[in-house]
């Protein structure tokens, strides 16, 4: 049948789900992120076989087993390098890396930093709950100084890092933050992150009801202060995270400074939404500059197995 005659098949939301038992604790914020990922894929109508989900280790690392796409549940802290290799092999796949805050900002910090330099067209989602859940609640790199969750013997005496600030310095071209329990907003953020050409970084506040008794659903809702602790950037009329002229250094600095300021806002007004966006040549584009065939085809489809190496020997005569 000619291609044009076939209406593109519509994928159902159910087609992004597996029947593998989800073994997260009841009430875990991860459910919100999982559901948001599935809904974002569904909204974008990504063919499941054209997606690769690549995760680190920890509770969040189990996500690929629950999404019916290609998946690699890798090593602690190494989701980004594996995702990078996957994307380089087949840049026509949608590649998403996932992991926890310990995975990404602790053991995987070097890859978090350096992936920002490449601007490969992939998306990185971090489930940020302030604790190492699967090993029973030790402080993670984002837990603030002086905090002591119920499973910690002593309060933390080192400061938590600000991942948004690090991402701005590392060179990510799309930076956002969401909240696991606001699925509607999170779906929108994930959709934007995937659609962005370049490396998108999305930090998601996620609740761990078992081990983090400080950053709870109630805390984010601000039950103690009478208003939500979350501030929606997209609700603010004067918030424009987009660098409209990527050649304008002043505009870049101005947008980064504003994003930085928002990321350091007080705990009673935590900014969620898109912090920063700029369109710059991707790593994929630059590779295609060197290997023009990559403009049309992924590396995996190039005729790599019929190479004539005689000219290389000739040079050695």
């Amino acid at each position: 049948m000619p291609e044009a005659a076939t209406a593109p098949r519509k994928f159902t939301l159910g087609e992004y789900k597996t029947d593998v038992h989800v073994d997260w604790c009841p009430g875990c914020g991860d459910f919100g992120i999982l559901s948001s990922i599935q809904q974002a894929f569904f909204q974008l109508q990504l063919p499941p076989h054209r997606v690769a989900l690549i995760s680190g280790i920890g509770c969040s690392g189990k996500t690929p087993h629950y999404v019916d796409t290609y998946g690699l549940h890798t090593l602690h802290g190494r989701a980004l390098p594996v995702a990078t290799g996957a994307k380089l092999a087949n840049h026509q796949l949608t590649v998403m890396a996932l992991g926890g805050d310990g995975d990404g900002y602790g053991i995987g910090a070097g890859y978090f930093l350096n992936s920002g330099r490449r601007n490969l067209d992939i998306t990185y989602v971090v489930y940020n709950n302030g604790v190492y859940g699967l090993t029973k609640g030790q402080a993670s790199p984002t837990l603030r100084k002086g905090l002591k969750t119920k499973s910690m013997p002593e309060a933390s005496i080192q400061e938590g890092i600000n991942p948004i600030a690090v991402a701005l310095g590392a060179g990510y071209t799309w930076i956002g933050r969401g909240y696991a329990l606001d699925v509607k907003h999170l779906v929108s953020l994930i959709t934007q992150a995937i659609t962005h050409k370049g490396t998108s970084f999305l930090d998601v506040y996620q609740t761990c009801p078992v081990y983090n008794d400080l950053r709870t659903k109630e805390w984010y809702a601000g039950e103690d202060i009478g208003h939500s602790r979350l501030r929606r950037l997209d609700a603010e009329a004067d918030w424009d995270p987009v660098v409209h002229d990527p050649a304008n250094k002043d505009e870049i600095v101005q947008k980064k400074v504003r994003a930085l300021a928002a990321s350091y806002d007080n705990d009673d007004r935590l900014a969620v939404g898109v912090y920063y966006k700029i369109d710059l040549p991707t790593y994929d584009d630059q590779l295609a500059g060197k290997i023009p065939a990559l403009k049309e085809h992924p590396l995996i489809d190039l005729p790599l197995y019929e190479r004539d190496v005689e000219p290389l020997f000739k040079e050695l005569e």
Partner: peptide, 19 residues
């Protein structure tokens, strides 16, 4: 790469994708 851990894992990712 940024270090040898990235080197090997990037290569594993690419191998899994079929190159």
């Amino acid at each position: 790469c940024e270090d040898e851990i990235a080197s090997i894992n990037m290569a594993v990712g690419a191998a899994h994708m079929g190159i």
